[in-house]
Structure formats: C-alpha cells, structure tokens
Design a protein around this nucleic acid. Structure first.
Length: 595
RNA sequence: GGUCCUAUAGUUCAAUGGAUAGAACGGAGGUUUCCUAAACCUUAAAUCCAGGUUCGAUUCCUGGUAGGACUACCA
C-alpha cells in the first residue's frame, strides 16, 4: 500500500508541478492516533517542487489522490501534514483476503534467501548456565525463527568452549577434593556439580594469592606463581599433549555438564542443528595460524609466541599462540570460523555474543580478512547488552549470578501460585495444569527478556518478581486463551465460522483498527528480520493484544444477534488469535488454550 | 590514558528527523446479573547539561557530566 501511495504521489507531483521527484523525498508514515487518517504524507520536503505553501501543496496532492486512487476515501490537511484515509471497504476486503491466506508469513519472504548460520549459547563447560545465557539463548533462537520465517536457510549452531584453562580448574579441584563424587552419588545436576568445583578452585586460588602477597610478593606475580594455577597450567599442557588420564577425566566431567545443559535447553525450548566443540576446532586454528606465519602474515616474538599486527586496521597487536605453543581463545575462533565455512558455505554467520566481546570480534574479522578469507565480511557480531543486577554486573566468581535452572523453576512456581489463586483451572488434570503453568511461567520470562531492545543492557531485580500483569507475556497469552474459549463456545453452540458470510460484513471503527494491526504483522516481521530485533515483535504482540482486549470488553461476539456481524467478529477474533500465536512463536513463546 | 556503548515519569521499557514523547508496574479512583477481572476505564508523573545542523531534534553532530564494557600468553 505504501509503495502504491509513494508512486501515486510521485505521479501527482509530476502532473501538478511538472517535476520529477526523488522517491526518498516522499515521506509516508502511519497517521498518529490523534488524527483522522491511515497514512500521512509529510509535505515539507515537497514544497520546493510546488513552490507553494505546505497547506496548498497538501491540498492539491490530496485532491489528485482522491481522484486517482479509489482506495483513498478522504483526506485532511493539518499544517504540513496530509492525512489520507483508506476506505473501510478496502480494509474489509483486505481482511477477507487475509482469511484465505494459509501461510501468513508469505508477505515476509525475501527475494534472495541466504544461508545463515546463527551461533548462540556458547557455554563454557565449567559452570551452569545463568541469566545472561538465557538472554543469549532466547535472542539466538528467536533470531533463527524470524529469519527462517522470511525464507532464509538458517542453521542453529552452538560452539561449546570445552577446552582451556577454565576447564582444567574444575578438573583439578575435583581431583583434589572430589573423592570421586559424581552426579549420581551427589544427586546434583551435572553442570552444577562441575560448577561447584570451579568455585572451590577459585576460592583456593584466591587464598594462595593472598598468602603470597602477605609475604611481600606483588599481586601480578602472585597470580602467576600461585602453586594451584601452575598446576592448572601444567594440566592444560598435558591435555593438549593428549595425556590419557587427563583426557579421560575431561571427557567424564564434560559429559556430566552436557547432560545438565541438555536439560536446561530443553526446559527453555531451544535446540541446535549442529554443535561445534572447540576441542575439535582449536587444532585447525593452530594450523591455520602456523601456515599464515609461514606466509609472513603473522610474526613470531623471541619467546616463541605468535602475533598478528593489526595496527593498520586501527587495532592492536594480538597474540595467537602462547610461547608454550598452546592456543588462546581467538585461535579456536579462527579455526571454528573456517571449519564452519567449509561445512556450510554460509552467506552470513551471526554470532550471538554479548557486547563485552565487541573488540574480540573486530579482531577476529580483521584477522580472517588478513588471512585472505573474503567471506569474513559475512561474519556478524550480534552484540547484545548485559543483564545487570541492581548491584551491578553478574559475576560467577563472586556468586552474584542468577542461575538459569533456578529462575525457570521459580517462574513456573509463580505461574502456579497466580493461577491457583485465581482458580480458573478447576476440573483440569494435574498434567494439563502443569503444562499451563510451564507455558505461562516461561512466557513471562521470555517476554520479559525479549521485549527489551537487544543491544541495550537490561536490569533484572531478583527481589521484584517478574510481572504477570500489564505488558507481559501472560497478558498476551491471556488474550489468546480468551479467544480460544470463545471459539470453543461457538463450536458448542453450533456456530461455525463461514468465510462466505464475510462478503457483506461491515466492520465498525474498532474492527478496522484491528484489521490495520493484522496488516502490520508482516511489516513487523520483515523489519525485525532486517534489524535483528525480536523486541519489535514483542511490542507488536502487546499492541495487538491490548487493542483486542478493548474490543472484547466493548463488544459482544457470540451475543451479537446479526449473523453476518457475529460471523465476522468470530472470524476476526480467530484470526487475531492465530496472528498472536504465530508472532509469539517467533519469540519461542507457546500459547495455552486456557489459563 | 585509548576505543566503544548507554542516559526518557518514582521504577522497568517504547518512540524510520515530524504533529500534544507512548506503555507497564507502583500511586489515586472507578467497572463484574454480560463470550475468562491475568481484563477494561479515569487520573497525577519524564527527554542529563550546553552548543550546533534543520522548516522541525528524544532521535543527527560537537563538547561536557554520569554510568557501563573492552583495552590478558583469561574465556
């Protein structure tokens, strides 16, 4: 519609003022609520063509449009704004067509589908997932859903940081103080058990550093020479050398962690098509670095460490291999990127990683380009903001983390409490009830996180529980459940929706508003896919649900006497429920049939 | 020190350079013989400061101020 308008307006300018106008100067936007109209043309930029006042120009264009575009039923001019009203008939017809549209994502399809890898989650195997990971997982999964809906070929991948000094820390602590404890023997979830030993290591390490500092050693040296960190480093070298016993423990402890992660992922409702392990790709990274060293792309220092000089890119020098020959974080990322490109020949690879790593990804891209990989242009760092607590950033070492499993459980429990208090689920089985509690609890959590602009830091206050009222997931789920309830009653009363009856339906003003919002769905999805912004969809869902709740309050659906109107209202409600559930689906949020 | 990000009601969040800056929570008040009151309605309350560009700035630019991130042979 906007496209048609734009062209018609260009035509108007041509015919009225005999001038060709740059399409970019034709600014069309949705008319604001306070004014009468659907689309608004901002006339200011056009007065240089008309050489007239904004009011007169608007008047002229308005008259031209009303005579040349049947969909426009009226217009009004306020200052430099030309408000155009689309006829009710046009909207009614639009809704009719929409009812016959099986795939509501059809209008969102891109002309050229791309192969897109979305990497998200990227956990370390030394501690359980926390709220930061939840934001990451939800954003990654939602991004996958959105891009896929637009017709792209999207592959969900995960890179597991399963090697490195941090893993050795947990392993070492377990060897020292674990007494052979396992998830089975302790009854602990595997990832939590391993996390426990990571904390034990850090505590001991801290103690040793403090003890050394008391003996007069400076902090930096103390950090480097504490006996336990030396042991951990030796362990890493042994691991990289393939020492049988070390590798065995590593495998065992990692398997515990994976079981724990799988459970959390399942509860969150996210999954992956392909999982990469850094223990597999770091070697590729090392080889690539060494090869590039031969080609003089990188350089070696006297101590044997290998570096990239990125000063030409406005960045610093970056170490790629330690003097002892072991790989660092970026070495693995180089390897992983190359392996991935070989596997999928992707057009884009989107890394869902927190903004604390902005510099890291700048460096990674620069290095890959320096190595001659043109496809590195397709690497996108989807940089999202941190989740902060009232007292600041979450820090695992200081125990100020919000554990993912705990939070999920808490949300479901709150949903249960709220629901039981309202007492609307009498007569349902325990199993059905639990399913509803799960959907609502997770819906509240997911919506709470996804409605916020991804690039911004967000605040989570553990002492204030996540809302279930107002602009929340449950609000939208509730709207959906209400409609489904109406639909069930309709069927009970043998009132079947009949598309044929739509022909003569005359929507009222509120219904036109709802149809306009339905139309906004595909525009919203398209925009979210371009801007990588699920929050946009969340806000849309709220807008639609809010509008419908008002409608539901003011008008009766099944109580309507006129069969044509009743049928129209029924179909409108049904369609809105469908849009809501599809839109929330893009956020990974499930809708309960009742609540 | 350098680089980057952020700053909007009491609080948490919105607003392609456009009209009277929207919501929610919290506050005050109201709606239930009527399809689910997790709803609906009314009400008070905000663009960090100073410049600049523009017909027009919360939005863009510059400089402050405040907060945060990064700047490891950690990941």
């Amino acid at each position: 519609m906007e496209y048609i308008l734009r062209n018609k307006i260009a035509e108007a300018v041509r015919s009225l003022y005999n001038k060709d106008v740059d399409l970019n100067l034709i600014q069309i936007q949705k008319t604001r609520k306070e004014f009468n109209g659907d689309y608004t043309l901002i006339v200011f930029p056009l007065i240089r063509c008309s050489k007239n006042t904004p009011e007169k120009t608007a008047e002229d264009i308005g008259n031209f449009l009303i005579n040349n575009l049947p969909a426009i039923s009226e217009f009004n001019v306020i200052k430099g704004f030309l408000n155009l009203k689309i006829s009710d008939k046009w909207w009614a017809d639009y809704f009719k067509d929409f009812c016959f549209l099986d795939d509501i994502f059809l209008p969102c399809r891109v002309a050229k589908p791309e192969i897109i890898l979305v990497e998200y989650s990227s956990p370390n195997t030394n501690k359980p997932l926390h709220l930061g990971h939840i934001r990451n997982n939800l954003l990654g999964y939602s991004l996958y859903k959105i891009l896929k809906s637009c017709g792209h070929n999207v592959i969900k991948t995960n890179i597991v940081n399963d090697r490195g000094i941090h893993i050795c820390k947990s392993m070492l602590a377990w060897l020292k103080w674990g007494n052979g404890e396992t998830p089975e023997s302790s009854g602990m979830k595997g990832d939590h058990l391993v996390g426990k030993y990571y904390v034990l290591f850090e505590n001991e390490y801290k103690k040793q550093v403090e003890a050394l500092m008391k003996q007069g050693v400076d902090e930096e040296t103390a950090r480097q020479t504490a006996p336990i960190i030396i042991e951990a480093r030796e362990m890493l070298v042994k691991w990289e050398a393939g020492d049988t016993k070390t590798v065995e423990i590593w495998k065992m402890m990692n398997s515990w962690v994976y079981q724990g992660f799988d459970e959390t992922y399942r509860k969150l409702g996210v999954d992956f098509d392909k999982i990469y392990y850094e223990s597999d790709t770091y070697k590729d990274g090392k080889e690539l670095v060494l090869k590039a060293l031969d080609n003089k792309i990188f350089y070696k220092k006297e101590d044997g460490s290998i570096w990239a000089d990125l000063t030409a890119d406005g960045l610093d020098h970056k170490v790629l291999l330690r003097s002892d020959g072991t790989a660092v974080y970026i070495t693995q990322d180089i390897g992983t990127a190359v392996v991935r490109h070989n596997d999928y020949k992707f057009d884009k690879c989107i890394y869902v990683v927190g903004n604390e790593q902005n510099y890291h990804f700048q460096v990674l891209k620069a290095i890959l380009k320096k190595m001659g990989f043109a496809w590195a242009d397709g690497l996108i760092h989807y940089s999202y903001g941190m989740v902060e607590l009232p007292e600041g950033k979450m820090k695992s070492r200081e125990g100020t983390v919000v554990d993912a499993d705990d939070l999920i459980e808490e949300m479901i429990n709150t949903a249960r409490d709220v629901s039981l208090e309202l007492g609307k689920l009498d007569g349902y089985s325990e199993e059905e009830k639990n399913e509803i509690f799960r959907k609502v609890g997770l819906g509240a959590l997911k919506y709470f996180i996804l409605k916020i602009d991804p690039k911004k830091n967000m605040l989570f206050n553990p002492s204030e529980s996540i809302d279930f009222d107002g602009n929340t997931g449950p609000f939208i789920q509730y709207t959906y459940a209400r409609i489904r309830s109406v639909m069930r009653k309709a069927i009970q009363n043998k009132i079947d929706p009949d598309p044929e009856l739509l022909q003569s339906a005359q929507p009222n003003a509120k219904e036109i508003e709802l149809i306009k919002l339905i139309k906004k769905f595909s525009e919203t999805v398209t925009e979210s896919a371009v801007t990588y912004n699920p929050a946009n969809i969340a806000n849309y869902c709220y807008e639609l649900a809010k509008e419908f709740n008002q409608y539901y309050h003011d008008y009766t659906i099944l109580g309507e006497k006129d069969p044509v109107t009743r049928n129209f209202r029924l179909m409108l409600s049904d369609r809105i429920a469908f849009v809501l559930s599809e839109a929330m689906g893009l956020l990974g949020i499930e809708m309960p049939e009742r609540m």
